[in-house]
Design a protein around this nucleic acid. Structure first.
Length: 613
RNA sequence: GGUCUGGUAGCUCAGUUGGAUAGAGCAACAGCCUUCUAAGCUGUGGGUCCCGGGUUCGAAUCCCGGCCGGAUCACCA
């Protein structure tokens, strides 16, 4: 609750108690921003009091308004005027309150950083798992959404007072990588990233696609010879070879392991480059090849404890029918482990490594069932954290003709997309950026990088993470309107103003108490200034809501609204040419504070802001 | 079929625990640069909030029933 809401809430409670004898709880105090077509800053919805007051809504509104303005409030009298429209009481808050808010916000170096109750002076620890790629193909747009969400959520939770550890579990073993390895052995002629000039992850991805192509050919051949599809898929020699390779891998066959290590190292080099370009990183990386054995042993323990059962063929299962779910395989009949097994082991190791208070998995909504099961299994195995794990389940990125599929080549590649964004940004900014004084090629490129990436990140993060979103490769991502560059541009314009102010030796960059008093006594705040201060004052509660909801989109909406408010103000009023010194100081402070808040909000989104563009 | 999830302007999306005449951007059209950066600002047109019931002072929002889409229910990850 903001300071304004706090004060008003108290006063309204007093009012309705005195007027009607109502003991109002927080739920009954409904405050909202006044709609622009009415006069006022804050609106109280009075319907909750109408029944007990036994009066018409408009009359109740008028009586409460009257009380707030005229009655014997000694401290914090902040309501100046009011008007009542039906059951809505529109309140005008005194300039002195807003000016005080601005002074406080301007002075707060860490505005937007929230505190969280601590135990033993330790911030609670949240671990955020995101990215978690397979090592058989390069990252695509779906991964981009995951990475941007994971990064942003980590930043948002830090701003909400958590200590955050970002982690990545790399799915580096399994049948998928064996397929790439096999295709490379058969068709690769020793191709390496060096020899071909390809990025390692792309090279491996090409062989994954190659495997699929050859495999399908074999299946088609078998079917042409009269075999049914199901059998053909199992009997195709390539598939059998891949499975044999996986078994060799688990047995530790040196040749297979060496090849595996070599090819994975190519992939990691490629991933590192993509991550760097995207601007994401991790505090701790786990590899499935190091955790799956731990998972196996946990399953064995659970089996011994009677939590699980073994079937005749040797496979191990969990019976979840009591929880309203199915039976779930934990170990295959040949003793090899599955995805779930690995996740159990990873969870255990993580809790050994860190004093985790909350574990968050940023994983697509297609895996909701998996995490429901994982939660129950961890709980059964006696891990106290099982029940409370959070599956941050986000929606798919869809193309106009449906889902992306690696094997069908209908994917938007992460590297290509980012390069395209840089190129677009460079093209769009050409006329504009080249006119900036003393601009170097280097800076121009850097601006294009920040803006292109900003456009992409904002485009993805502004959508409610829970919902599926659509990306149309035919239409380029916008740089105008409700976009990252729009907000970056607002920031750059403010920086330009601030640079000029400091050049001309404007001392009072920060509004002082005396300025505030002068402003109050003279013109007062204009509506655009007031709207901006009110917006700035909202920021902490927006950060809190984004944290509670795990939603970067909330931050996007706020940053956009703040930029809109500023642009409107900037258009209507001059900052540097304002003759009145107190007003000039106020506006400079306002501009600097908006810039500071934009930078903070954009940082929560992982978006950099350029000083010029 | 069971479970979960979504359906808001031509398109992409907002819409805090139910609140005033449902909002942005893009696209279309019309204006605004001698003035702190026009990636900006202002205006116009554009809606059966999927459909039908219910709850109440009030429903895009909550409940029930339909229609349509997506995900999931693997010895894949």
């Amino acid at each position: 609750m903001s300071k304004l809401e706090n004060i008003l809430s108290q006063q309204v409670k007093s009012a309705v108690k005195e007027l009607y004898g109502i003991e109002a709880d927080d739920k009954m105090i409904q405050l909202q921003k006044t709609r622009p077509e009415f006069e006022g800053n804050v609106t109280l919805v009075v319907f909750p009091f109408v029944k007990a007051a036994r009066k018409a809504p408009a009359q109740v509104a008028t009586e409460i308004g009257d009380w707030l303005v005229n009655d014997k409030i000694v401290n914090d009298k902040i309501v100046n005027k009011f008007n009542a429209v039906q059951g809505f009481l529109n309140l005008s808050i005194a300039d002195s309150f807003w000016l005080g808010q601005l002074e406080a916000i301007a002075a707060d170096e860490n505005y937007g950083q929230l505190q969280r109750p601590t135990t033993n002076d330790q911030r609670p620890l949240m671990m955020v798992e995101y990215s978690s790629p397979n090592t058989n193909k390069p990252l695509h747009l779906g991964h981009v959404r995951n990475n941007l969400l994971g990064w942003s959520i980590a930043k948002i939770q830090e701003a909400n007072g958590w200590k955050v550890v970002k982690t990545n579990i790399v799915n580096d073993r399994g049948i998928h990588i064996c397929k790439s390895m096999l295709a490379w052995l058969k068709f690769g002629n020793g191709e390496t990233p060096e020899s071909s000039g390809k990025k390692g992850d792309h090279l491996i991805g090409d062989y994954y696609v190659r495997f699929d192509k050859e495999y399908r050919k074999q299946v088609a051949e078998l079917m042409a010879n009269g075999m049914n599809e199901e059998t053909a898929k199992k009997e195709a020699p390539l598939m059998k070879e891949a499975q044999a390779m996986l078994l060799k891998w688990e047995q530790g066959d040196k040749q297979v392991r060496d090849l595996w290590a070599k090819m994975n190292s190519w992939v990691y080099a490629g991933f590192d480059e993509t991550y760097r370009k995207m601007g994401v990183s991790f505090d701790k990386i786990y590899y499935e090849s190091n955790t799956y054995l731990e998972g196996k042993s946990e399953v064995e323990k659970g089996l011994a404890a009677g939590q699980f059962y073994r079937r005749e063929d040797g496979s191990v299962w969990a019976d979840l029918t009591k929880d309203g779910l199915d039976e779930k395989l934990l170990l295959r009949s040949d003793g090899t482990s599955v995805y779930m097994t690995q996740d159990i082991g990873t969870a255990k190791l993580r809790y050994q490594d860190y004093p985790i208070d909350k574990m968050v998995y940023v994983v697509g909504n297609e895996q909701e069932y998996h995490f429901k099961v994982l939660s129950i299994l961890l709980d059964r195995l006696g891990f106290p954290f099982g029940k409370e794990l959070v599956h941050f389940s986000y929606g798919m990125v869809e193309l106009p003709n449906g889902k992306m599929k690696s094997r069908e080549g209908t994917v938007v590649d992460a590297d290509d997309l980012m390069e395209q964004m840089f190129a677009d940004a460079r093209e769009i900014s050409k006329d504009k950026v080249n006119t900036l004084p003393d601009i170097t090629d280097e800076e121009a490129n850097e601006i294009a990088r920040k803006v292109g990436l900003g456009a992409l990140k904002y485009f993805i993060l502004k959508v409610d993470p829970r919902k599926n979103m659509l990306f149309n490769p035919e239409e380029s991502i916008d740089f105008n309107g409700n976009t990252g560059p729009f907000i970056q541009y607002t920031y750059a314009r403010i920086q330009s103003v601030l640079r000029k102010a400091s050049l001309s030796g404007e001392a009072g960059l920060t509004v002082q108490r005396s300025d505030s008093v002068a402003v109050q006594q003279q013109s007062g705040l204009n509506s655009k200034e007031l709207a901006l201060i009110q917006r700035l004052a909202d920021y902490p509660s927006v950060v809190r809501q984004a944290g509670d909801d795990f939603s970067p989109a909330v931050i996007c909406n706020y940053a956009y609204a703040l930029a809109c408010d500023f642009n409107s103000f900037y258009h209507d009023y001059s900052i540097l040419n304002e003759p009145d010194e107190a007003v000039r100081a106020l506006r400079l402070t306002l501009a600097a504070t908006v810039a500071k808040t934009i930078r903070h909000a954009m940082d929560l989104l992982g978006i950099e802001v350029p000083d010029r563009m």
